[in-house]
Amino acid sequence: MRAELGTLAWVFRREFGARFDSASALTVTVVFALVAHGLFFFLGHPVGDLQLPSFWAGGVASLQVVFAWLPLLFVGLIPALTMGAWADERAAGTDELLFTWPLSSRASVLGKFFAVWAFLGLALAIVILPLGLVTASLGNLDWGTVFGGFIGAFFLAGACISLSLFLSALFSEQLSAFLSSALLLGLLWSAGLLVHALPAGLADAVNYASPYAHFFDSAARGVFELKDLIYHVSLMAAGLWCNALVVEGRRWS
């Protein structure tokens, strides 16, 4: 167990460091931060059930606008961060060495997952913290709801990352991995908008299955609930399990 944690930590170190060496990862993170700040200050959130004015227009000391936008921003950001995680290994053939070194598939899958999750957590902090400081300096910001929203967004990101990594493992081209992942996350996000068009029972089921519903209805409003945590962790475990199956399945191919 200790040895497995050790190898997991080494994969984490390598993958986390690689994100800082990747021009595309850094560029997309900077774009993510700039777009999030722009939306918060100037556009607000005029989409779906959660309609909110921009910070300057509304003059409310709350980060709810940025939390409301995060799920859609994740549709572009997360596939960009995960697309190369497995697809690149496969294209370059480095997975052949990775799986002949003495580490388990589980350690490599978890190491990659935690590296992307930690990098995204950092990107999230870079977005939220300056906004929080600016808002707090101009009004009475409730840091508790900011923290709840941050934790909720972080766990939502974890679930999305595990699904995207699974899709990355299915492809040997980064573009295919990116497109399939963006399509899946986009569909999950838009499910929240489409539920009104569905019959009541089906709408409830779709709403419950959507990871975004477990964010919009709670954490995005500053309330982080245990059932949402369980949902996101379960989705993460399912994504990682599928990822490990695909990776291990390559040995049989």
């Binding site: 040895a3 050790g6 190898t7 930590a9 080494w10 994969v11 170190r13 390598r14 690689a18 060496d21 990747s22 370059a92 053939g93 480095t94 997975d95 052949e96 060495l97 002949t100 070194w101 003495p102 580490l103």
Partner: peptide
């Protein structure tokens, strides 16, 4: 652990420095 393998296409993490790459591989060997 008993095998050292050099695949046909020599796949390496090209973004890493030689010494750090070897340190990484040593780390994976526990």
């Amino acid at each position: 652990r008993a095998v050292g393998y050099l695949p046909e296409s020599t796949p390496l993490y090209r973004d890493m420095r030689v010494d750090r790459y070897l340190d990484f591989v040593a780390g994976l060997h526990g």
